[in-house]
Structures are given as C-alpha cells and as structure tokens.
Design a protein around this nucleic acid. Structure first.
Lengths: 141, 141
DNA sequence: TTCATATATGCAAATTTATTGCGTTTATGT
DNA sequence: ACATAAACGCAATAAATTTGCATATATGAA
C-alpha cells in the first residue's frame, strides 16, 4: 500500500505523462500527508504558498484529469482535492454544522460503476463515482 | 407518487413552515417539471427571470434547509438543485465531456446512511447522502 | 551536455458564483 | 384590517475560478 511517506510524487507525475515540477510535487506531498480532501486554500497554506494561485488551480486540474487526485464536493462552496493514486476508494461523511469530514471505507461488494452502467440508457462508460454522506458529528450534536 | 403536474408547491411550502410566496412557488413549479438537477442560472431563465438573483439564492437555500429541494454537485463549478419532495432517492450519472445527466434509481437494498453511521467513529447522525457517477455518454463516446 | 520545444508558470485582468447589509414589501395568524 | 416576522430587492462586496499572454523550465533528442 502507498503510505504518505513512501509516496513518490515525481514518479506518479511522470507515469501519468505530466512533468515533474517542484510545484506539483509539493502539492502531492501535501496531499499525501492528509487523510481528508483539502480545500485549495488549505493546500496553498500547507505548501508554504510559493506557488501562484493560478498555477495551483491549473495543476490540480491537470492532476485530476489524469486521476492522480480526486475532486470532492463537501457542499462548502468550493472544491476539495485529495490524493487518489494508491488509495482505496472511500467515502466521506460531512458534518453539516462544522464541516468536519471523516472517511469511511467503500462498503460495496460489487463495483458500483458497473451496476450503474447497467442501469443507464445513454452512457457508454462510467469510470468513477463520488459518495458523500451528510449528518451531524458528535461534537456538534 | 407526486408527478410534475400534481405537485402542490404552496402546500409543500406551508407544510415545511415556509411562506408560500409566488417566487418560491414558481421555483418549485419549474423544478417539478424537470427530471434533472438544474443550475441556478437555468432555474432563473426557466422562471422568466422575474425573481431577483439574491432572492433566488436565498430561496433555494431555504428550500434545501427544509428538504424540499436537494443540492447536487455535478462538478460543473456551480450548484444544481432538484426537487426532492415526493421523489425517490436517486443517483446521477454525469458525462464528463458534455455535462449530460441521467438519473438512476437507488441501487441499495439497505439504507446506506445506516451502514455509513455504523462505520463512522465521530458522527451522531447521518440523514442524507449524494451519489454521483462520472463517465462518458453515448453521444460523446 | 547542449538544444529545441512542448509544457508549465506567473502576472494582471476578467468572469462567474455566491454573500451581506439594509430598507421595503408581503404572507400569515389573530 | 392589522401587526409582525418572514421575504424580497437593490447595491455593493466577497469568494472562487478562469483567460490571455509573455516568460521560464522539464524533458527528450542530437
């Protein structure tokens, strides 16, 4: 399994056909130490904010396009990203009150993408899915 | 089952403790005729754009708070809303290329919220979830 | 190792999406 | 028909994201 410490950002980038620039490597290193999806703002501060805002947006878009990171929506009004490479697909539980996020393992025995594809009429392929739960965390309850 | 034609917007509003204003009723009527989540922009144009932008945002927030509508994220960079009152929980399949959306019925035998709650450590309750699939539609394939 | 070049970055500006404050209007219960 | 809390509209602002273009750099080939 890919752990935070052993994650090789540059290798992942090159394997995906992207250039291994310092900025992108730093982004991935930051994300590799996190267990939750981070907002762009957070990624920025964790990086030390050397990378230009626009570049950060573009880098995350590129990383998402090749599947190294995944974009998640926590209904907070802005995008969140997390490392997907080397991680098991998992779901998020989001506190409606304070925004706290907890990961839970994927619960499905079967691949939900397959099941979903069988049920659609107009789709040729389904390659990913996002599952978010919403509720109240213990601290807010 | 609640169909588009029979949906009583004013009754739904009052039952939820909200005032039945023309603007809100119109929003719900618009949504009732749709099978997909609509962007705020779309809702606005479908309404005939009499309602102020800010009021529209606030109305949708209020409607989402009481559960009449549901907010969905199609990874398009802005919020989408659909009527939830009277509809079965369902999922969305989103085309990454053109944005086309197709609904599919909920596939789970058990309530996923329950399963999720059992698996969390820090949550007191989970009352909703969102499941979106991403892929390529036939037309774009 | 140097070089050519597609790729990535940075800056400034613009756009899109969403929010706030506040005074006025209106739906609703009495 | 009245009082009043809830909604609304307007103007301004904030937050999130994107675009165009000039410069810099990672990478493969010579």
């Amino acid at each position: 399994m890919t752990t935070a410490r052993s994650f090789d950002a540059e290798a992942a980038l090159r394997a995906a056909g992207l250039r291994a620039t310092p900025g992108r490597s730093k982004i991935l290193t930051v994300l590799a130490y996190e267990t939750h999806p981070l907002s762009i703002e957070r990624i920025r501060t964790r990086m030390g904010s050397t990378l230009n805002q626009v570049t950060l947006y573009r880098a995350l878009e590129a990383l998402a396009d090749v599947g190294i990171v995944t974009r998640a929506d926590m209904q907070h009004g802005h995008a969140h990203y997390e490392l997907s490479a080397g991680r098991k697909h998992h779901h998020h539980v989001v506190c409606r009150n304070c925004g706290r996020v907890e990961d839970i393992e994927a619960t499905h025995a079967t691949q939900p993408e397959r099941e979903a594809l069988r049920r659609t009429k107009g789709f040729a392929s389904i390659d990913d899915y996002a599952l978010e739960f919403f509720g109240t965390c213990n601290r807010c309850a």
